[in-house]
Design a protein around this nucleic acid. Structure first.
Lengths: 114, 114
DNA sequence: TTGACACATTCCCATATGGGAATATGATGT
DNA sequence: ACATCATATTCCCATATGGGAATGTGTCAA
């Protein structure tokens, strides 16, 4: 057999750096194919295809609006990756590190609410 | 161009399910190629090749011991994945969820120390 | 209807894959 | 030296890739 198809699961879909870049770009909100193409310096067909893969594994959703297509991030689809890699977290993170992380996050959350 | 080579980075190396299985198996400690092959039901050459990829991206290390080769997990090499996917954590996790996670982990750590 | 626009799809190609089978390498025991 | 064991490597092949170029599709405005 050949290599596992990119649309098999989120792990394979996200292996490609351009697709991770697309998700990063979408984390700030909805975006159009053209916008993404310009932001990432990719051709329009390239972006369309990458978004097709990301859509196939459910990590992005589309909203059709006239001749535009608004792509939106669907974060929870990335959870399997998080859950898996989290198993190994203890190999580099101590409990105190994690507490620091949590406190830092609580702080940033407080800021956003003020 | 073709697809990004598996040895490019950890993301690509870990996209293949068999290689994730290998890492899972190694999380309980060092293991031999033969052991891994039997545990995962893979052929010896297959395991050797997969380990080669994992080694190329630094997520496993080898220790030569006579005619045996003890492979060992190098967890921190997975951190880039964790760091990246963590950016999206807030899309599915609330602060309280994370607190629950932390408490659960502290509990399990306490158990291991008794 | 026609044209312009925003995307999606198709066709092309060089390239790497993972798996099996076969073979090479290297260390050990006799 | 030799046979054996544990791994690595090579050769094979079907298959999918990502990118560019070209083309198809659907929507809007005049």
């Amino acid at each position: 057999m050949a290599r596992t198809p990119t649309t098999t699961d989120v792990f394979n879909a996200v292996a490609e750096a351009s697709r991770r870049d697309l998700l990063d770009a979408l984390s700030s909100g909805e975006a159009t194919v053209g916008e993404l193409a310009e932001r990432l310096g990719l051709s329009q067909p390239a972006v369309s295809k990458h978004l097709g893969v990301l859509r196939a594994v459910g990590v992005v959703h589309v909203r059709v609006d006239g001749k535009h297509r608004w792509y939106r991030l669907n974060g929870p689809a990335l959870k399997p990756i998080h859950d898996w890699v989290r198993t190994f977290e203890r190999t580099w993170n101590t409990r105190l590190d994690r507490l620091d992380d949590l406190l830092a996050e609580l702080h940033s959350q407080e800021k956003k609410q003020s």
